[in-house]
Amino acid sequence: MRLIATGLLVAMAVLFVVARLLEPRHAAFAFVGAFAEAAMVGAIADWFAVTALFRHPLGLPIPHTAIIPTNKEKIGENLGNFLETNFMSYDVVHAELVRIDFAGSAAHWLAQPANSRAVADQAVSAVPVLLRMIDDKDAAGFLREALSGALEDVKLAPILSQVLSVLVAGRQHHVLLERLLGIVSGALEAHRPYIRQKVHEHSPRWLPRAIDEKFYERLMEGVQNTLEEIQGEDSEWRVRFQAATEELIDNLAHSPEYEAKLRGLLESSLSHPLFRTYVGQVWEDVRDRLLADAESENSQLSAHLQSALQAFSRALERNPAIQQRINDWLRTFAAETIVAKRELIIALVRRVIRSWDAETIARKFELHVGRDLQYIRINGTIVGGLVGLALHSVSLLF
């Protein structure tokens, strides 16, 4: 564009010379000469104006030229102020973000099997790296501390009391009692020979075998009758069991002594060497399983994660209300974050512009707007020529 504008100036100069040479032959060449003369003036004036923005015309240090390089610091400062005032306000940023449907776009994108699979694979591929970064002893210690810390402020007895209350309300404690009694009764029947042998071994040697056998039969019959009696709906045993259960629930809910006992039992269990060893073994087993699955071509973890992502995306697509909530939260969060950090962004703009040398900043501006500025030179040439032609015509009237 610069070559075209300059070429047009040269063409006007040639046209002016030719018109002056041919003017004696015909009066029309005077109009051509006036046009070319004014066009040259307009072209040169606009060339000077355009060039003065970016450099000194012809290298001469004329005042008020090379405006952009000379005012580099001021440009950076004003550009930063302009961005901060007109672009980095909360209302402007939030209004722009309202146009973006974050949740809907993400849900639609994740609903595509290829995309959800890619996300799942990327997430699972990071598992081996993370696991190998963690020392086994540190991980086991972390699990123990996390479990201890999680239970530190928890009141165990009231929680257990509430659980038992739920069981009692559904009469599940009677079902449990009947199951236990059934197990005991079945175990007695299954081990009758063993029990008979133990009774004979502990009986006096002088006691006749028949009497010993009779004692065994009466013992087994008494135990079975007692078990059947306990299972009766209106038995005294059931009443006692109900009363004991209710008393236990009340003590767990209100007695500090029961809380202290449970707390002591828990702390002793967590600090026991067997528990420490068990936690370490659990961590090693979990780690090995995760590593094997993550490094497998048919990773179940990746498949489950993909299914979860697709299920989540489908559920999100069907729920515009949740999409709106997520979008509102993201827009507010993003707008507040950008506005809160706008001083850093503006400082970056100013710092980068200050770091440019004068020639660089002039070249960058000229590359962005120079094409339009060359059109100004072309238009100046044409408009100048037309004005010159009009003035020459007017002068002939006087």
Rank of each mutant, 00 (worst) to 15 (best):
R351P: 00
D328K: 04
T337F: 04
R325M: 12
R331V: 08
H368C: 14
T337D: 09
V352I: 11
E359R: 09
R331I: 07
I361V: 09
A340N: 13
W356Y: 12
R318C: 07
E336I: 03
S355Q: 09
S313D: 11
Q324A: 15
I338R: 00
A308G: 12
V352F: 14
I338C: 02
S307G: 12
L348Y: 10
A340R: 10
S307D: 14
R318Q: 11
E343G: 07
V369E: 15
V339L: 01
P320Q: 13
A311P: 02
W329T: 15
F333H: 11
L305P: 08
V369A: 15
R325C: 09
K341F: 03
K341E: 10
E366C: 06
A347M: 06
P320N: 15
I345Y: 02
P320A: 14
F312N: 04
T337K: 08
F365K: 12
W356T: 08
I338Q: 01
E336R: 08
F365D: 13
A335W: 02
E317K: 05
L367F: 15
F333E: 12
L344A: 12
L344W: 06
V349C: 09
N327A: 03
S307V: 13
N327M: 04
W329R: 13
I361Q: 00
T360L: 05
D357Y: 13
R331N: 11
W356R: 03
D328S: 08
I346P: 00
G370L: 04
F312E: 03
R314M: 09
D357F: 12
R325I: 11
N327H: 05
R318E: 13
S307E: 09
A315R: 01
L330D: 09
I361R: 00
A358E: 10
V339R: 00
I322A: 11
F312K: 04
F312V: 07
E359I: 09
R318K: 13
E336P: 02
R318P: 01
V352G: 05
S313M: 05
Q310D: 06
R371P: 02
A362K: 14
R363K: 02
R363H: 13
I361A: 00
T337I: 05
K341A: 13
P320K: 12
L344N: 13
R371M: 06
V352Q: 14
L330A: 08
T360P: 01
A315K: 02
L330I: 09
L330E: 03
Q324R: 12
R325F: 06
I326D: 01
R325A: 13
R354K: 08
D357R: 06
Q310F: 03
Q310M: 09
W356L: 13
W356S: 06
V352T: 07
R371H: 07
F365R: 08
S313R: 06
A335G: 05
A311K: 08
I361K: 00
I353F: 03
P320C: 15
L367Q: 15
A308I: 13
R342I: 01
A340I: 10
A321S: 09
T332R: 10
I346C: 03
L305D: 14
D328V: 03
A335N: 04
A311V: 11
